[in-house]
Design a protein around this nucleic acid. Structure first.
Lengths: 218, 218
DNA sequence: CGTCATGATTTTATAGATAATTCGATGGGA
DNA sequence: TCCCATCGAATTATCTATAAAATCATGACG
């Protein structure tokens, strides 16, 4: 999680910057001057450039040639986009992972859900939530898919921390338990549907959330 | 398509290398020495490193810290993975794009299909095929999704060129026309299902293809 | 025969120089 | 007097060249 020593310098810089962007410490649209950042990290500008490329691949910054990089702004449309992509990909991963899910894994997932219950701040909750999703999806054994989902999770976390999140505690826990119950009963399709709706719901604005819950499962 | 002049040098290098990897000119697992490539392009190693990062983001190379980059090897599982991801994401894109599809766009897509009919080599066919998919998906207006699909297309093209492709002409054209007909009739769900099956079929090994066609959508 | 050390190759990082774009200022025109 | 255009300076990205760290291989010694 925190800057492994054997990582290359560029990776460490990209991780620190990613944390800041996700946490909202750097506002969207802000230009990232490479000399400024290089000076802050006591490095030169070359590893900073590499860090920029990594962040660009994750969709956290946008790079305009000869005009530098800016923190990617996220509009309502982009938030919806990430949610839809997560829904599509996580459903795929769950379907492939389902045959390989063991009771031990599902128990671990339930424990992650409980950890989310007890979370008092958003960071702890997000950690538990991501842990839950990772536990039930990893057995699909599709590395490229899992990496894509992970990038979408970080994008989700970004606006989750940004203040205009909905009430996330109750419905999420309910959905998580519903997914686990369906999986334990062998009803993969039901679990997939709940997962899709669950992911799409997160990241809705509060008023949209309530309206969507009313028409739920239309 | 070919190395726009206003692109940065790193982008041009990454495009050339991507073409080579896709065309199979560089075998999977081969180490890419940055000095060697830099010398070939008459550049230094810094833009080469940036090009490596872009290729890594596309999944065409894998980078081990302090040990250089190697051309990503693609196994049968990885090919299946890319096909499944494409199916999931393209279906999503098509559903969102459907309301914005105009008759003019569908006509252009049909023309792209005809271009695929007339293609004599794999390169030309792949170009027409990608054009078709892009035409019917772009109106979804989801840039992140479209970029992800595009990366998956290049990954698909890689093993399409690698020799162990199935007979790709006839079934593809039939699927394309079926998709267009369904879209013209307003049957978005039908079009989405055909598209999903179509994408999953491409990239199957020949014997798998025939078996899958027999048990269609089993 | 195994292990350790040394050398060569390769990746990674730093510093300096070059080119391009943006912002600000100044001058001309309405 | 105000607005627009053009020119210039400064900021910024990009590239080249050079040095340092690390890994792998080879060979010698125990």
């Amino acid at each position: 999680m925190t800057t492994a020593k054997d990582d290359t310098l560029a990776v460490r810089i990209s991780k620190v910057l990613a944390e800041r962007i996700i946490a909202g410490a750097i506002a969207p649209g802000v230009r990232l001057g490479q000399d400024h950042i290089a000076e802050e990290f006591g490095a030169s500008h070359v590893p900073v450039r590499e860090a920029f490329r990594r962040l660009e691949a994750q969709g956290l910054v946008v790079s305009e040639p000869r005009r530098g990089v800016r923190v990617a702004g996220f509009t309502v449309e982009e938030v919806r986009e990430v949610a839809e992509m997560r829904a599509a990909l996580e459903v795929l991963a769950l379907r492939q992972a389902a045959p390989h899910l063991t009771k031990a894994l599902l128990d671990q997932a339930e424990e992650a859900t409980r950890a989310g219950d007890k979370a008092t701040d958003v960071q702890a909750w997000e950690l538990a939530n991501r842990h839950f999703h990772r536990l039930i999806l990893t057995p699909c054994a599709m590395p490229r898919l899992l990496r894509a989902i992970d990038d979408l999770h970080t994008a989700s976390a970004r606006f989750l921390f940004s203040g205009w999140r909905a009430e996330w505690e109750a419905p999420t826990d309910r959905d998580h338990r519903a997914i686990l119950n369906a999986l334990r009963a062998g009803q993969v399709e039901t679990a997939a549907q709940v997962l899709a709706r669950h992911v799409q719901t997160i990241g809705q604005k509060p008023w949209q959330t309530s309206r969507l819950k009313a028409t739920t499962r239309g």
